[in-house]
């Protein structure tokens, strides 16, 4: 936790389109980081916030590779090195018979990486965030489209007025509660 409480100017919009315009404008004119909050993925947020591509596919790809290599290595080590048994004269290294488990290990590791990787990358679980200080933000998961601007030297009152002009239904100014 940082020692200095972060401050955010927030604005809630009824329509995603208005929010997108405002988010884009804020990103271009304000120093602090702009974030958008929507109840469902809205097309255009990535462009409005100029987000780079997600890292998740690379993460999952790496997981899959580890799964496949690890799975096959496990099978090979168990069947050939650690516990070689002759079953009906079949080769100890029975590559075709190793395919199904190798495949499943690849899937398992991809799934685990996708789930835990994405949560860790997004920083969850994290039950508290300053944006929750705004009472109106409770509708951000239901039917309102919010943006937040972390203050980095801008005047909060001026920002709020500007957001109102951009069509915000309500605006707010919140401060992080430090323990």
């Amino acid at each position: 936790m940082s020692e200095v409480a972060r401050q955010f100017v927030m604005a809630g919009f009824k329509e995603p389109e208005l929010m997108l315009v405002a988010a884009k404008r804020m990103r271009e004119t304000v120093k602090g980081e702009v974030e958008a909050y929507t109840p469902y993925p809205v097309h255009g947020v990535d462009e409005a916030l100029a987000l780079p591509k997600s890292i998740i596919p690379k993460m999952v790809g790496t997981g899959a590779l580890f799964g496949v290599c690890g799975g096959y290595t496990l099978l090979y080590w168990c069947s050939v090195i650690a516990y070689p048994i002759n079953v009906g004269g079949r080769p100890l290294h029975s590559a075709p018979a190793f395919i199904p488990i190798t495949f499943e290990c690849g899937i398992l590791l991809s799934a685990l990486t996708a789930f835990f990787g994405v949560l860790a990358w997004m920083g969850y679980p994290r039950l508290y965030h300053p944006v929750f200080e705004s009472p109106g933000f409770r509708r951000a998961s239901i039917d309102r489209f919010w943006i937040s601007i972390e203050l980095a030297g801008d005047d909060p009152n001026k920002l709020q007025a500007e957001l109102k002009e951009l069509g915000a239904e309500e605006t707010d100014f919140v401060t992080e509660q430090l323990q």
Partner: peptide
């Protein structure tokens, strides 16, 4: 887990969700 629906999160979330669907299909 404290989900707040941030744009950055939706981007990664949708990517992970689609990938999970992608691996669940051959699975």
């Amino acid at each position: 887990l404290g989900w707040r629906g941030a744009g950055r999160h939706w981007r990664d979330y949708m990517s992970a969700y689609t990938l999970l669907a992608g691996v669940a299909t051959p699975l």
